[in-house]
Design a protein around this nucleic acid. Structure first.
Lengths: 332, 332
DNA sequence: ATATCATGTGGAACCGCTACCACAGATTTG
DNA sequence: CAAATCTGTGGTAGCGGTTCCACATGATAT
């Protein structure tokens, strides 16, 4: 591994000069620059990121902390982040927090020691303290989905409330007359917003009842169980808006097993827009979040912050989109 | 951020001594050690990984290069790698190569500059040159699934050949009398092994014909298309062994749409054991690879190599397991 | 009693790079 | 024409660690 000294020696200049051409900083004679570049080529020299990191306190590495990469929402998001990072010359470290605050804290610490350039938190548990700490140690960060109570964060998310209304409206348009909702853990903001959106949309219907809202855990089995509960409580529902696609697929399974025709007897609409929704039969209608775009935006914002550009510390809200598929297309 | 010097000053010793207690190297008086530790605690000191990296050429960071994290096989694998890494004090960088050799090369270069400690390649395109290069620059690595032609690599994979035989046998046991196979890209070793396993198992049956083998791309749509092709060619098949779960789910979709009863008219068996197989209805019988264990093993082996332990450069082959589910459980 | 060795500690070079400072000659400026 | 400014380059002090070497004791061996 050639070092900057080797290049300097070969080019017959000082290391300062090499550093200058490397960083395009300060004055360098065009001739000299050519010589240096020639030497760099000959030695196949590449500056050590680690040595740079030591002086700069920045390592062109960003971290992505998410609850669990196995949850199908996150791979696509990660892909987006990695794509942006790579093309911008960054590298990405990923960590699973399982939504546990201590794992997150531990990661923050490790990342600090590594002079990580910035962090993206996906649906996590940051609190005021964490935010203050991150600001104190001066690590730029962007939050996905969940806005810490404290203002002053850059947050990327999509419009869950409107999405929920969209879902209900779609089910109504599809001819449903009694629409239930399976909701996710209420500690999670997105789940809450979707629940509120549902409630708001249906509360004035005569058929509305609070018992139409059944809790789930945002996972497959949660959706399966919730659908069972729902069928016992309200055998007459003919439409279900499920808080996320994973649970919606679970609910679909339950209904199919019960011999219920989807969509003709009961229509289902999910939320998220993950690929899984297209894998099942009938394919799942869903309110699609622009997952990839969210990842891209988060990564872009983070990199802007890292590189010192002014970034509004506000909530960047992206629009969701109804994707109608077979699970809500009743055949007359 | 406290540095080692701060600790030394507070403890009233030299930085050499602090370094010694940090690394438990050399002699340190038990008293002194206590003092130093007290100072470390008081200052909340944590050594900088970057500075350490500069001297050690190692950064307690491993990289995981995979084709595409969006492919449902990889999140689980990644999770395993990250779990092991974290508990061993390592951090993981991940990169998507899309199976493109140039992206892989680019990553190797970047990782070298970052003094990465080691790399795990998942189903990638390493060739002799790459292997030689990695050995030359002395970066430990482990390969998943695909063994580069050159020997001397540590490879983790599962027994795809036996798995395929298991699948065929299971379909036969389930009462199938004409079994087709949808296979994956033959550049991929695993796909090839599974195809060979299939062929070997069925070639002596009178119903066997090479046209029972239909190509797919290891993706959902590939499975869908292949199933169509198959149904036109051989409307009388009553069992399909599909080269991976993703395509199997696609095939299942096609069959269901054609109004074919699965498993009664046609039974389906996939390969991989990804969660998706349980999300569909009927649930998919599959030959499960121990995905998580493979990740754990790969990470363990890599870390052993990094830390200088002797690791056999051989193929570590794990057993697959038949997981019978509804898609092959014919009702009489 | 002297040589040898295990124990304990500090000094300083070095890892590879950046950035500040100093210096010198060429150009501008007032 | 002296002063100020621009251009171009080299020297060197860090960044925060690790590690080798030197040195001082007290204990053990010969």
């Amino acid at each position: 591994m050639a070092t900057i000294r080797d290049v300097a020696r070969l080019a017959g200049v000082s290391i300062s000069t090499v550093s200058r051409v490397l960083n395009k900083s300060g004055y360098v004679n065009i001739e000299t620059e050519r010589e240096v570049n020639k030497a760099i080529q000959m030695l196949k020299y590449e500056p050590s990121d680690v040595a740079r990191g030591l002086t700069n306190k920045k390592t062109r590495t960003i971290a992505l902390i998410l609850p669990d990469i196995v949850n199908p929402f996150f791979p696509e998001l990660s892909r987006a982040v990695e794509d942006v990072a790579r093309t911008s010359g960054y590298t990405v470290i990923f960590g699973n927090s399982d939504g546990q605050a201590n794992k997150e804290k531990a990661y923050i610490n490790i990342l600090k020691q590594k002079y990580i350039s910035g962090i993206i938190f996906a649906s996590h548990n940051l609190n005021r303290n964490d935010v203050e700490y991150l600001e104190k140690i001066d690590i730029p960060f962007v939050v996905l989905d969940r806005a810490p109570s404290q203002e002053g964060c850059t947050v990327v998310r999509s419009n869950n409330f409107e999405g929920a209304k969209l879902a209900v409206q779609h089910l109504l348009d599809a001819g449903c007359n009694k629409i239930a909702h399976i909701y996710g853990p209420q500690e999670i903001n997105t789940a809450k917003d979707r629940l509120i959106g549902y409630e708001e949309s249906v509360k004035n219907f005569k058929w509305y009842s609070p018992t139409l809202m059944v809790p789930g855990n945002f996972k497959l089995d949660g959706g399966m169980n919730a659908a069972h509960v729902l069928m016992e409580r309200h055998p007459d529902v003919d439409g279900i808006f499920v808080g996320n696609d994973l649970m919606a697929v679970g609910a679909l399974k339950t209904l199919l097993r019960l011999g219920i025709n989807v969509p003709n007897q009961i229509a289902i609409c999910g939320f998220d827009g993950i690929h899984l929704a297209e894998a099942v039969e009938p394919e799942l209608t869903t309110i699609a979040q622009p997952i990839y775009e969210m990842g891209v935006l988060a990564a872009d914002l983070l990199i802007k912050k890292i590189e010192g550009a002014e970034v509004d510390n506000r909530i960047y809200e992206l629009e969701v989109k109804l994707v109608p598929r077979a699970s809500t297309t009743k055949c007359i």
